[in-house]
């Protein structure tokens, strides 16, 4: 597997990119805005810069922040059957498992649908705002970004939203179900969270955290 290239170029490690998924090595070619650099072997997208991605992410993150707070406070679903009414907020739903060991499940659910998404948004803002303003990165920005990336699979707001749809169908013939304002907020939130993840090019963020002046 040895090639002449591998021995004599002695590899300037800053000019090389390694696919995190299959460990293939490529010479770094920075794609233009809107283009995507893919790994030739496993086709993972390595770099996908977008024009003004930072600004877009910050704008989306701010709206996500307000939506999460709003969605957690306002009533979310209301139910009405034969004069008995009940309105719940997302916090109520998250804390539905109460009593005994089920309280752990309550806390986990609350974390998955509210705390992790909220925390991720705050960390994203903390990391990206200085970068976009061409300031030096915030203190511990690298650790913050690491943490936010580690939380990515555990922030499950969009799954909760689909769960609502399933739950609604199940109750629909039992009682009349109405949507509170929080339900619509949560719907928009899901779209925004997905958009935010697709704007974010991890490689570019790491790169600008490492070389703040040239960003």
């Amino acid at each position: 597997m040895k090639d002449s290239v591998t021995t004599d170029s002695q590899l300037d490690l800053d000019k090389v990119i390694v696919c995190p998924q299959c460990d293939a090595v490529f010479q770094l070619v920075r794609p233009q805005h809107g283009e995507r650099a893919k790994c030739q072997r496993c086709h993972k997208v390595l770099i996908a810069p977008r024009r003004n991605a930072g600004l877009h992410i910050i704008a989306v993150a701010l709206s996500v922040l307000f939506l999460i707070i709003g969605a957690a406070i306002f009533p979310f679903l209301t139910i009405d059957a034969a004069g008995n009414k009940n309105a719940v907020s997302i916090l109520d739903a998250a804390l539905a498992f109460s009593g005994g060991p089920m309280i752990i499940l309550s806390l986990a659910t609350a974390a998955l649908i509210i705390l992790f998404p909220l925390f991720r948004v705050l960390l994203t803002l903390y990391v990206l705002v200085p970068v976009v303003l061409d300031r030096p990165p915030a203190r511990h920005a690298i650790r913050a970004f690491r943490l936010s990336e580690a939380m990515r699979p555990w922030s499950m707001a969009e799954i909760f939203a689909i769960g609502c749809a399933v739950a609604l169908v199940k109750v629909a013939d039992l009682a009349h179900v109405g949507f509170g304002p929080a339900f619509w907020m949560f719907g928009i939130l899901v779209v925004l969270v997905i958009a935010q993840d697709s704007f974010m090019c991890k490689w570019s963020v790491w790169n600008s955290l490492e070389h703040p002046k040239r960003s």
Partner: peptide, 12 residues
């Protein structure tokens, strides 16, 4: 999540 939603909502 469905269980969580149902059990907080359907308390009539």
């Amino acid at each position: 999540f469905v269980v969580a939603i149902l059990s907080s909502l359907v308390q009539l």
